[in-house]
């Protein structure tokens, strides 16, 4: 028996919107402490890792660990039918091949349930090792989205370089080049507007902007984004979901031939 009631249903809608274009199908792993998802995109260049802890739910019951394979496009279609203020409940029964999403309006005058077919998914469960990063940049998520969008109109790849001067995003394309430098800026009115650079050693890595732009679909989930980089490791782009967990995107770098 599985029953999870999320008062802030819009959160789940936003989570799905942030990952559905990257990953088609994924196993949702439910346990008593929360649920998680880990899946690579079809080309094995990017990986999404989602965690939503049980504390974030108004009601959370998961009698035994269970894994449910879902098509994220179909799940997104169903969650789009929930209003932004709706309370969303996910229900499942042991051994069932369906999952039910229940949507309640805040005034309880409209209640809908949508039953979705589950699927068997062979997923390679990868262990993601904890790593020490050369540089960790925390910045406003909207600013990061803006930079990725702007640079993608000029080039296909972004070089992200962190030095003690700041973080530089660079691209080049047929029409020219672009460089955007952000300096550490902690003297802001609101902490979420700060750009904070933790650097142990300078680092410079190249990534495909197509993937970075896909990650920025998670912008509505968090005011800030954290970018963690070390040479020879995938970059981690993390959007924290307040008091509940995170969506993390891992992206393999591009290397010069």
């Amino acid at each position: 028996m599985l029953e999870l009631r999320l008062v802030q249903g819009s959160l789940l809608k936003k989570v799905l919107e942030s990952i559905k274009d990257l990953v088609n199908d994924a196993n949702f792993d439910f346990s008593s402490s929360g649920f998680s998802l880990q899946s690579m995109d079809s080309s094995h260049v990017a990986l999404v890792a989602l965690l939503l802890k049980s504390e974030g739910f108004e009601h959370y019951r998961c009698d035994r660990n269970t894994s449910m394979g879902m098509n994220l496009g179909n799940m997104s279609k169903m969650l789009k039918c929930a209003g932004n203020d709706d309370i969303i409940t996910i229900k499942g029964d042991d051994g069932s091949d369906t999952v039910t999403f229940m949507f309640e309006s805040p005034t309880q005058d409209k209640i809908a349930d949508f039953e979705m077919k589950l699927m068997d998914i062979d997923s390679e469960h990868l262990g993601i090792p904890e790593a020490e990063y050369h540089a960790i940049v925390k910045m406003p998520s909207a600013e990061f989205a803006r930079i990725c969008k702007d640079l993608a109109s000029i080039g296909d790849t972004v070089v992200i370089s962190v030095t003690k001067e700041g973080v530089k995003f660079s691209t080049r394309g047929d029409i020219g080049t672009a460089n955007i430098v952000l300096r550490q800026n902690t003297t802001v009115d609101k902490p979420e507007d700060a750009t904070v650079i933790e650097m142990n050693e300078p680092v410079s890595m190249t990534f495909a902007l197509r993937y970075m732009n896909s990650f920025t679909k998670a912008t509505p989930l968090s005011n800030t984004v954290t970018i963690s980089m070390s040479p020879d490791l995938p970059v981690v782009v993390e959007y924290k979901i307040a008091e509940m967990g995170y969506v993390r995107f891992y992206l393999a770098p591009k290397m010069e031939e």
């Binding site: 690579m40 080309s43 094995h44 260049v45 990017a46 990986l47 990868l126 262990g127 993601i128 090792p129 790849t157 190249t206 495909a208 490791l233 995938p234 891992y250 393999a252 770098p253 591009k254 290397m255 010069e256 031939e257």
Partner: peptide, 14 residues
């Protein structure tokens, strides 16, 4: 010229 690495090379065997 750039070569796109894939994640399997990082996470395989973990």
């Amino acid at each position: 010229l750039e070569r796109q690495l894939i994640l399997l090379s990082y996470f395989q065997g973990c």
